[in-house]
Simulated assay, not measured.
Amino acid sequence: MKEVILALVTGLVVGFLFAWFKLPIPAPPALAGVVGIVGIYFGFKLYQWVAPMMERIF
């Protein structure tokens, strides 16, 4: 949980600094882009969970 809080705080600071210096945001500017990144993460985790089962079958 500590890593999640540190990542959130770091993201907030970086986002604030990017806005302050009027730089483009270093992440997808829309919620759909953020959800896509979350989907990629969960797809990767799903593969890690399913792959051992597939190895036993094939």
Rank of each mutant, 00 (worst) to 15 (best):
F16K: 01
L23F: 11
F21W: 14
W49R: 14
F42P: 04
K45T: 07
E55T: 15
L6V: 07
L23N: 04
V4Y: 11
F18A: 00
G15M: 01
F58Q: 12
I5A: 05
F21M: 05
K22I: 03
G36N: 14
L17P: 00
K2Q: 14
L17S: 01
K22H: 11
Y47K: 12
P29I: 00
V50I: 15
V38W: 11
P26S: 00
W49G: 07
P28C: 01
F21T: 04
Y47L: 13
P29H: 10
P24T: 03
I25S: 04
I5E: 06
L46P: 01
L12D: 00
V35E: 11
L12S: 02
P24V: 02
E55A: 12
F18K: 01
K2R: 14
F18M: 02
G33P: 04
E55C: 05
P24Y: 06
T10V: 09
W20Y: 13
A30G: 08
L46V: 04
G39D: 07
F42M: 13
M1I: 02
V35R: 12
K45H: 08
W20R: 00
G11T: 05
A27W: 03
E3M: 08
L17M: 03
G11C: 02
I25G: 01
G43Q: 07
G43L: 14
K22N: 09
A51V: 13
V50D: 03
G43A: 13
A30S: 12
A51R: 15
A51M: 14
M1G: 06
V14G: 02
P29Q: 07
V13A: 04
P28Y: 02
V9F: 10
L23H: 08
T10S: 11
K22F: 09
E3G: 06
T10Q: 08
A27P: 00
A30V: 12
V34K: 08
P29C: 00
I25Q: 05
V34N: 06
P26D: 02
E3K: 08
V34C: 04
A32M: 10
I25K: 01
W49C: 09
F18E: 00
P24W: 06
Q48R: 15
F16G: 00
G39L: 10
M54T: 13
F44K: 15
G43F: 11
F42R: 14
I25C: 03
G11A: 03
W20G: 01
A51G: 08
V34R: 08
G36F: 06
F16R: 01
A32I: 14
Q48V: 10
A27E: 04
A32E: 13
V34E: 04
V14N: 02
V4P: 01
Y41M: 07
V34D: 03
F58M: 09
K45N: 10
V13S: 01
G39Y: 08
L8R: 13
M53S: 13
F42W: 12
G39E: 08
V14T: 05
V4L: 12
G15F: 01
Q48K: 15
F42C: 07
M1K: 07
